[in-house]
Design a protein around this nucleic acid. Structure first.
Length: 256
DNA sequence: ATGGCCGGGAAGCCCGGA
């Protein structure tokens, strides 16, 4: 059975519901992992997703952060805690669906390199990696990693080098994920580069294609072998009232 | 040729985003 799975930083699930439902009707993903809900579990539009045919697993928070997985198939062993790290920030939810462990994550932005939050960001990758390595099922980490992994993943690598989301210490963390067996799935299917998943609202960035690839799918080796394709759908970034991110989609062949 | 945004919560700005 082939599943279509997507990750999308929606930048407010309530403000984005028209765009999200339009995209779901266009693409009919089996599973969609969302970040930056900016909503509590009480504010989360559970009934609207249910009407669209999805179960929801939600880790909400007032005003900031918040992540959710919606799935056409049942989710089991839903977890929201990352070893007690940053307990006040709802940035992770994971579940097993059709035998695959999906870890949906919204890595801290970090503010800027001098900000204490930048050190928390670096630590977040380490804790996340340890967590991801703890599962015996085929495992996929997907979400907003808030780093462009390589030179070909951002519009102006020379002038951005050393700034937040393109700092060598952040990029190194994605290399360490690879060393730990978590492969950058989009890159495998799209080796040419300069394909982005986020464009700033300011400065007409989308029209000028001045973006960054911040939204990643990192698959453990067993899961990676089951994945048959991965792409970025730029279309909803051009719709009315868009998120500043656009969906990253992959296909995975799972046993019946 | 250049680049000025967006969302939420409290309030009529400020913080955070990246």
């Amino acid at each position: 059975m082939k599943l279509k799975v997507a990750t999308w930083n929606v930048n407010s699930v309530r403000a984005r519901m028209p765009v999200i439902s339009r995209w779901i009707e266009k693409e009919s993903p089996d599973i969609l992992c969302m970040q930056e809900l900016k909503a509590t579990e009480e504010q989360y539009p559970l009934d609207e997703f249910s009407d669209l045919g999805y179960h929801s697993a939600v880790n909400g928070q007032v005003r900031w952060n918040g992540v959710a997985v919606i799935s056409k198939y049942p989710m089991t062993n839903v977890q929201k805690d990352l070893y007690g790290f940053l307990p006040e920030q709802s940035r992770m939810i994971s579940a097993t669906v059709c035998g695959i462990r999906l870890i949906n994550v919204y890595v801290p932005n970090g503010g800027d390199v001098e900000n204490p939050r930048f050190q928390e960001k670096l630590k977040y990758y380490e804790v996340l990696r340890e967590y991801a390595l703890s599962f015996s099922e085929p495992t996929v980490i997907l979400g907003d990693f808030n780093v462009a992994p390589h030179l070909e993943d951002t519009h102006s690598p020379e002038e951005q080098d050393g700034s937040v989301c393109f700092h060598p210490l952040e990029r190194e963390q994605i290399r360490i994920f690879a060393e730990a067996g978590f492969n950058d799935v989009f890159r495998r299917f799209n080796p040419e580069g300069m394909t982005f998943s986020w464009w700033d609202y300011r400065a007409a960035s989308f029209r000028r294609d001045r973006g960054m690839r911040l939204d990643l799918v990192l698959a453990g080796s067993t899961a990676d072998k089951m994945i048959t394709g991965c792409s970025i759908d730029r279309e909803p970034r051009g719709w009315e009232k868009p998120s500043d991110h656009t969906p990253v989609v992959f296909n995975i062949e799972v046993p019946e």
